[in-house]
Nucleic acid binder design. Structure first.
Length: 298
DNA sequence: TCGAGTCAAGTTCAG
DNA sequence: CTGAACTTGACTCGA
């Protein structure tokens, strides 16, 4: 396979801009909401332009683009209030053939046994769906993890599959599932993805923390197959020390090259994208383009 | 202005 | 059973 895009998430360190400016729920006023969303959308526009200038065509939009939009008490009609801005972003992304994704946080748990938690998770996923439907219905994907285990992984996976069916058709079409670093390894994720006919996202660090049985190459083949005609995307991050997974500032070039080689050697006539998860964000991507890629390409 | 504490939210595990 | 860790960035308030 052939590497197409490298991407990063939410923040641009060169511009010092984020799509995740927020405020306290207790301070939520119409003015605060309007100001903050305006800032986030403008930042996103600036980041897209910067990305285009620097040859980066893949970006994760922050979940807090519209702070509290998925909260039960949120009153404002953000899709109408910012219709113009969203239309402009859609046009801009399309012009540069950008790919976008989003990643709801750890509190969105679709497979929870607690009905209230599931209702909140669904509302959150539908919010992400609306954002991506406005900015990039062509490429938008929502990455989530499978959730908790609750002492019975098989039952928890069944619950995930059942609750998936409660999502809108649009949300179902955008949802993709990523292996996590403690509970659901890539084999578990593949099992769910195959059942639901949705793509699987392989994260190499999470796989190193929480490996699945079997040959990595075979697992990756199955991952690629879940994408059908679409372009698969992979995640790479690296971490400090042994405990937890705080991301390092940059990805170690050897780690990146090793991962890239494995994917390159899969026998598919396809392109693929990689999302870089490192503290230095865009700078980490540029460093890989300027260093690691040159080593690889000779 | 700076640093410490806090934030909408869930799950897991140590004690 | 409870409280802290998980992982993480940004806000807020008090010094």
């Amino acid at each position: 396979m052939k590497l197409r895009y490298l991407g990063y998430a939410c923040i641009n360190m060169s511009l010092e801009k984020t799509t995740n400016k927020t405020f306290r729920l207790s301070n939520l006023t119409e003015e605060k909401y309007l100001d903050t969303v305006r800032y986030n959308l403008k930042s996103l526009e600036d980041i897209i332009r910067w990305n285009a200038e620097h040859g980066i065509y893949f970006f994760r939009i922050g979940s807090e683009l519209i702070p509290f939009a998925s909260h039960a008490d949120f009153l404002y009609d953000w899709t109408t209030d910012f219709k113009k801005e969203f239309a402009a972003l859609h046009k801009l992304g399309k012009k540069h053939k950008m790919r976008f994704s989003m990643h709801p946080g750890q509190y969105s748990v679709l497979n929870s046994p607690d009905e209230k938690v599931v209702v909140n998770a669904i509302r959150d996923i539908e919010y992400h769906t609306e954002v991506l439907d406005l900015i990039s219905p062509e490429t938008g994907r929502i990455v989530i993890h499978a959730g908790g285990v609750y002492g019975d992984k098989k039952a928890a996976m069944k619950r995930f599959i059942k609750n998936f069916s409660k999502l809108s058709k649009k949300a179902q079409g955008m949802l993709i599932l990523e292996n996590d670093d403690r509970s659901y390894n890539i084999a578990d994720v593949l099992e769910i993805c195959t059942r639901l006919k949705i793509p699987a996202v392989f994260d190499i660090l999470h796989h190193d923390c929480n490996p699945a049985e079997g040959d990595l190459k075979e697992l990756l083949k199955m991952v690629v197959e879940t994408w059908g005609e679409d372009i698969p995307k992979f995640h790479i991050s690296s971490r400090k020390g042994e405990k937890g997974c705080p991301h390092t500032d940059y990805i170690e070039p050897e780690y990146f090259i090793r991962f890239k080689k494995i994917i390159d050697n899969l026998h598919f006539d396809k392109e693929y994208d990689i999302m870089i998860e490192a503290k230095m964000k865009d700078k980490a991507v540029l460093k890989i383009i300027n260093n690691a890629m040159k080593v690889v390409n000779g």
